[in-house]
Write a protein that binds this DNA or RNA. Structure first.
Lengths: 345, 345
DNA sequence: CCCGGATTTTACAACGTTATACAGGCGCTT
DNA sequence: AAGCGCCTGTATAACGTTGTAAAATCCGGG
């Protein structure tokens, strides 16, 4: 058992006051070089390490922010977490990771501060959380939301333009000659991001004069491989035979591709597939996956910036911040280019 | 901005002493029912929430343990994290997740308590960390290691039997008629788990009278898809043509399969593949992946139990704890059963 | 009606830190 | 040489909580 060394012990050892030691520890500027060195020697000799609980109590700051994600197992969120952690480190902040499972109840708990409670700020990536759940948030730690939101509440939210991204994905499919594009991964209104992607899908199809009827939309319970597989199977069993699939995210897309493979349907020859999030897994399947790639680094940086800006009780105007995205084209959408015009694939 | 309510405010509101409120909050037994109710009413009225920093300072306990993993993006670790979080919640403990990237320097930092510093205990899953790095650990928070270790230090370590698991995987390949089994994912002595798996691989091959020469072992820098792909490519370029591959983990195995696919080699017909960790991704590729499946739930439970048992300055005898594993057989090792006998593929 | 013992409540100190305000000491200006 | 201001270092008081020990209250029995 290592004995705990406090400022008092160091002060006694160096023969100075506690505050002087504190000044050295905190790099206070008005400390004579000789004194600084003497105290530092004592600090090293005793192996002093500041007690963060006391510091926290005194300053009211913990030096930690929480990042609450729906699913750690989804590599997209893992990469996003890494981005946030790095961005926070730049400001000497530690990130406390939490996961909500995308369940509304858990998201409410987190937003009210009942999960991670020793934090200065919170970055939350909600799935099912609704506007009213945040309306009367009785909690004073700053909150920043990841993911596009429709509502009007005094919180920043940072996201790519989901509608535009979905339209870009569908546009690519159309350009590749596809006429019947299914959407997999709707949540029947229970998820804002899903609604936005469905909307983008519908808008792009409609404006191209193609059909976007409900028979082409498959809802899922979750957004994992298995959900995508089940939904794809359901679509095929209705007898419907789309020539392209736009999936809510990459795991769903990969699950769907597995089912297509099992049924003897070839990707992309018979059915093209586009995912979302550009997860590493999508680059190593037997058929590599075309996907919408959000700029995770930017999202992480903006989130941290945004939450730290609200620390001192400051309340900058809430903003809707748009991060970039790109469509990464891979094997799953190859071929049959140039629908009604010339193509370049 | 929500005002911060302290015990003092509640005490004033209820017209009692601070300590009485504290007693109510902590469910101290000698509080008259009428008093308890009166105080509770004030607590509710003011929306009091205990200040954890002060509690921490006073009690010396934070109610948090850290779980440091090499890679959040690897779904194996994500699932493991979920298991630990659940197990900790049973004891009213919060888990602070950290990631080391599997880099020795980061692992040392974590083990010395320089990363997450407001914790009661630490569960660390090391990759490159060496015995000497822990020898003189000047840190008094209890540490538990995940992953089998050879050394003799006063810490519990919890793991499946890596050698036995590797032997089981290779044995399965041999039983399926394979004679030349490569290993992908060695780290040239820089990782204990890798060494153990290589040893199991070698032992099983040798005891079956098969060759286990160094030409069959491919080292990698990391353990992601790309590493597996690169290593597989390297093996093929030497002209060597194994009929099976045992990979350090599933992502490596999947990366390798992608390269085999690109070169026109069929899995499992030409080359069988076994992975490690039984990650969900392995169940949804074009060829599903046979894998060693550790009992993550048990590992999580044991880790939490183990770290909490060391809290009160108690130091139970350090133990090497073995968790279970199973080999899950899937498509990537089908066919050609029964070694030198007839097959059924 | 008073006393002893058990129950209930309270005052106070302490956990380790930093902010504030202040006391010396030095050098520079006038 | 006196005065002013800057640089250094210090004593003290918080931050919000809980453990300790003592004080107040209650109860039944003599």
């Amino acid at each position: 058992m290592v004995v705990r060394v406090s400022l008092k012990d160091v002060a006694a050892h160096a023969g100075v006051s506690i505050k002087t030691v504190s000044n050295v520890v905190n790099n206070y500027q008005h400390v004579a070089p000789a004194m600084r060195e003497r105290v530092q020697r004592s600090i090293d000799a005793l192996g002093y390490r500041p007690n963060l609980a006391a510091r926290h109590l005194r300053k009211g700051r913990t030096g930690m922010i929480a990042l609450a994600l729906p699913e750690l197992g989804n590599p997209y969120f893992a990469e996003l977490a890494a981005a946030v952690i790095d961005a926070a480190a730049e400001h000497d902040y530690i990130v406390l990771l939490d996961h909500t499972g995308g369940r509304r109840e858990q998201e409410i708990l987190v937003s009210q501060g009942f999960r991670a409670r020793v934090i200065d700020g919170l970055v939350l990536s909600p799935i099912e959380l609704e506007t009213d759940d945040l309306r009367d948030r009785a909690e004073n730690v700053p909150l920043v939301l990841l993911g596009e939101r429709e509502y009007d509440l005094p919180y920043d939210h940072i996201a790519i333009d989901n509608v535009a991204a979905a339209r870009a994905a569908v546009r690519h499919l159309i350009r590749m000659g596809r006429r019947e594009v299914a959407f997999i991964g709707d949540r029947r209104g229970r998820s804002e991001p899903a609604q936005l992607r469905v909307r983008g899908w519908r808008e792009e199809l409609t404006s191209a004069g193609l059909s976007a009827d409900d028979g082409l939309v498959a809802a899922t319970d979750g957004w994992g491989h298995a959900d995508g597989a089940a939904a794809m199977a359901r679509i095929l069993e209705t007898g419907r035979r789309p020539d392209a699939v736009f999936a809510y995210n990459d795991p769903v897309a990969i699950g769907a591709m597995r089912v297509l493979h099992e049924r003897g349907l070839r990707v992309p020859e018979d059915i093209a597939v586009v995912g979302f999030d550009d997860v590493v897994e999508g680059r190593f399947g037997a058929v590599t996956l075309t996907s919408v790639s959000p700029d995770k680094g930017a999202i992480g940086r903006l989130a941290v910036q945004s939450v730290l800006a609200r620390l001192g009780g400051e309340a900058p105007e809430p903003r809707r911040i748009r991060a970039d995205f790109r469509l990464i084209e891979r094997e799953s959408t190859l071929g049959r280019p140039a629908g009604d015009g010339p193509g370049d694939a």
